[in-house]
Simulated assay, not measured.
Amino acid sequence: MARARHAGALAHAAQGVGYAPEDRRLVPEFSVEDNIVLPALALRLPAAERGRWLDEVYALLPQLKTMRKRPGGVSGGQGKMVALGRALMVARTALLLDEPFQGFAPALALDYARTLGELRRSRPDLAILVTESTPALLDAIVGEALQIEHGAIT
């Protein structure tokens, strides 16, 4: 089961889909930077391309660059930022974010929302799909919002 899930994730990454799950799924034994580049390594992207994408991640999320040598078992909002950076390493066509604001203090949630807004402005060709239970936080990034209640779009 786990092998099939990982094969599916690799296939999606190969298609340019980056995914930041709600629970982050970081490898605590790896550094922050190792966690970020992991999907690019799994796809065997050339070092020059990995470097370019890592530079872009650090430009968008400069706090990750200062944390890059820390162990990957970071908590809360920092872990969400690392998961976003990891997803961005392969997100060429789409970025899927599952409850990206969960666990953030209000000020950090607004900062994260501003980061996503900057991403939307800098990469208008990137589809960003977000599941979020606090939709007001998405104002800076949404082009279209759909609300789903009990399995139906309302």
Rank of each mutant, 00 (worst) to 15 (best):
I141A: 12
G73F: 11
E132W: 00
A42R: 07
L138A: 15
A109E: 08
Y112I: 02
G72A: 08
A145K: 15
R120P: 04
W53N: 03
R24T: 05
A11K: 13
A83G: 10
L43T: 07
P62V: 08
L108D: 07
M89Q: 05
M67N: 02
G72C: 10
T66W: 07
A40S: 13
P21E: 03
I153H: 01
K65I: 00
R5W: 03
L60E: 04
A87K: 09
R123E: 14
E49H: 11
V74A: 07
A87C: 04
R86Y: 08
L43I: 08
R68E: 02
V142W: 05
E132R: 01
G151D: 02
V142N: 09
L116I: 12
G18W: 08
T131H: 00
S122N: 12
A59E: 13
R50Q: 15
D98Q: 07
D111K: 12
R92D: 09
T154I: 14
R123W: 15
T134C: 00
E56P: 00
D98E: 14
A40G: 15
V17C: 07
L43P: 05
I141K: 01
D139I: 00
L38H: 03
E149I: 14
R121Q: 15
E56F: 07
R120C: 13
E49V: 13
T131S: 15
Y19T: 08
L54V: 09
I128L: 12
L45Y: 03
R44D: 14
H150R: 15
G117Y: 14
G117K: 12
L126F: 12
A14G: 14
E118W: 02
L138H: 11
R44S: 14
D111P: 00
D34C: 01
I148L: 15
Q78M: 07
T115Q: 11
P39M: 07
R5N: 03
E144H: 09
A13R: 08
